[in-house]
């Protein structure tokens, strides 16, 4: 069951990290409005393979908006024109017949392109490794209900915890800042009683790693919040700054 839409795609192609790369134009024909954006690319790729041409490489996996693997910069916006969804949840009905669509990878020095539309987001891994955890080992923990948490706090922590680590915030930011991402994890654990013991070390370690990775600073433009597929709020950044400054200004024992 093919559709009636015909589109022109301008796609960033780059063989590997060292290649300069450039835009190549493709036609996408007989596209159904019910296809997801990635299914549209599947159709294009299938025809490329049939012609013996290298298919367009793009990251994707769960295709249900939760794994954070997909990452396209579509017509100048991370994850395309619709709010609060990932590219895999974007459907072709959001475009018009005959439209030209420009597709690029995330653009940030900290996320080098490894092929075509895929980037290396290992910087995010290293930030999480620097302190995005509570230091408890397996076993020997209290009964779950011995840690009561007010529902409003739990809900707020949950809102921060929904970050999928896709990197759209970095891609949207004119400074390529990773603050929304970093602050989401710091906030989740700063809000919860489980995270209290290490809250200040955590904030310092994660921010230090973030800076080391070469992400830019935050100038409160809010593009990250507007483009975040999980609607992580800017409040997280304010909370991260507070955690960070508290840790810097005071000695640990004074701020407990």
């Amino acid at each position: 069951m093919s559709g009636h839409m015909n589109l022109t795609l301008k796609v960033w192609r780059q063989k590997n990290e060292n290649d300069r790369g450039g835009f190549i134009t493709y036609k996408a024909t007989d596209i159904s409005p019910d296809m997801s954006f990635l299914e549209m690319l599947d159709v294009v790729n299938e025809s490329l393979v049939k012609r013996g041409e290298d298919p367009i490489y793009f990251d994707h996996d769960c295709r249900e908006g939760i794994c954070g693997m997909c990452s396209l910069y579509i017509n100048g916006r991370p994850h395309g024109p619709k709010r609060a969804i990932t590219t895999c949840q974007l459907h072709m009905r959001s475009f018009s017949d005959g439209e030209t669509i420009t597709i690029e990878p995330w653009r940030s020095a900290a996320f080098p392109v490894i092929k075509d539309l895929a980037t290396n987001r290992a910087a995010f891994e290293r930030i999480q490794q620097a302190g995005g955890f509570v230091s408890v080992g397996t076993g020997g923990v209290p009964d779950a209900n011995e840690i009561p948490i007010p529902k409003v706090i739990a809900d707020e922590a949950f809102n921060s915890a929904t970050c999928i680590g896709c990197g759209a915030c970095v891609a949207a930011c004119k400074n390529a800042s990773a603050m929304l991402f970093v602050s989401a994890k710091i906030s989740q654990l700063a809000l919860l009683p489980q995270g209290q013991q290490e809250r200040y070390q955590r904030a310092q370690a994660m921010v230090a790693q973030m800076d080391e990775e070469g992400f830019g600073n935050c100038t409160n433009t809010g593009a990250c919040e507007a483009e975040c597929p999980k609607e992580i709020s800017l409040t997280n950044i304010a909370r991260m700054n507070r955690e960070f400054f508290s840790a810097k200004f005071f000695k640990e024992e004074e701020i407990r």
Binding site: V134, V136, P142, A144, P150, K151, A154, A157, F158
Partner: peptide, 19 residues
Amino acid sequence: IDQCVAQGVPFAREYGGLL
């Protein structure tokens, strides 16, 4: 469940603060 809560997994809670 105990393990996950200790790690900071935000399970759904009731108004009394319990799971």
